[in-house]
């Protein structure tokens, strides 16, 4: 099959002529998301046994990987990966938004920053849930996607800072009061719990498991989506690009079969790990 696929590469435009695909995420953005979710899964899998250290599965897991020494090592390793990913993202924002003065980074329809339309969309969306109004038309980033983004952004700062404060406690104690060393553990574990519960339930369902995207939205893995998906999910962006005559500039190659299969394997693995962790977390949390 891969050979056939490669042979068909040249004639792909013809064979996929009816279904146009559009670029949504760049390769760098997809890699960053991959780094983000793999390190997050690692952090969750190694952080949860700590948070629920009295539970049987936590002890079993700790024993299986070589005790807590190994768990802590892996947790810190994932933390460093995530920190680097976060810094790369910050650098990109600063370069694009401040140095190159690219429009649409800090404000406007393509920005991640919330605006008045997001508030109206939220209420409009809820009215639509209840059958009280039409479905709002979303732009490049819908309000729940912006919330996901800022939740992760805030979460990384809060969890990262409190984590490093514990890792280098004597250093942080030079400028933090003593009680803050107690507080950072509470903050780290509660915020971590929130992130885990949110990502593994709300983000999974909103982005991947809801009927419109079920079983998985592949766009973050392949970077492209079909014209129909683009038009129904993000009508405002589609119409704006069309009006500006920029739509053709976003046309991209349809993803290869290997790319789709690879994305499926990676994506489903992540979702399954996440759901298992979610069940373990809820069972331990409710038993506390």
């Amino acid at each position: 099959m891969p050979d056939l696929e490669q042979a068909a590469m040249e004639s792909r435009e013809k064979s996929h002529a009816e279904v146009r695909h559009f670029m949504r995420f760049t390769r760098a953005q997809r890699y960053l998301h991959a780094a983000l979710f793999s390190s997050f899964l690692g952090l969750a899998a190694t952080g949860l046994p700590l948070r629920f250290s009295e539970s049987i599965w936590a002890r079993g897991l700790a024993k299986a990987v070589g005790g807590f020494g190994a768990i802590l090592f892996f947790h810190k390793f994932c933390a460093l990966v995530l920190t680097v990913a976060f810094l790369i993202h910050l650098k990109e924002i600063v370069t694009r938004g401040i140095i190159h003065r690219e429009k649409g980074i800090f404000w406007g329809a393509t920005s991640m920053v919330a605006n008045w339309k997001d508030v109206k969309d939220l209420f409009g969306h809820i009215r639509w849930f209840l059958g009280l109004g039409p479905k709002p038309k979303f732009d490049r980033y819908a309000y729940w996607e912006k919330f996901d983004y800022w939740a992760v952004f805030w979460g990384m700062i809060v969890i990262g800072f409190s984590g490093y404060a514990m890792w280098f406690a004597p250093f942080f104690a030079r400028f933090l009061p003593g009680w803050a060393l107690n507080a950072v553990l509470v903050i780290h574990s509660e915020e971590g719990l929130l992130a885990i519960l949110f990502i593994f339930s709300i983000h999974f369902v909103n982005t991947h498991l809801r009927p419109d995207s079920f079983p998985m939205d592949m766009v973050v893995f392949t970077g492209v989506e079909s014209e129909e998906e683009f038009k129904t999910k993000r009508p405002l962006e589609y119409e704006r690009l069309k009006a500006q005559g920029k739509l053709e500039g976003r046309i991209a190659e349809a993803p290869g079969i290997w790319q789709i299969n690879f994305s499926k394997v990676v994506g489903f693995t992540a979702i399954v790990i996440g759901l298992v962790l979610l069940v373990l977390t809820l069972s331990a949390y409710l038993r506390e």
Binding site: W128, G131, L197, F198, P211, D212
Partner: peptide, 16 residues
């Protein structure tokens, strides 16, 4: 956060 989004997501699922 969870309370709001759980309700939000459930309503969304039903409607979709």
């Amino acid at each position: 956060t969870l309370g709001f989004f759980v309700i939000h997501t459930i309503l969304w699922l039903i409607r979709s």
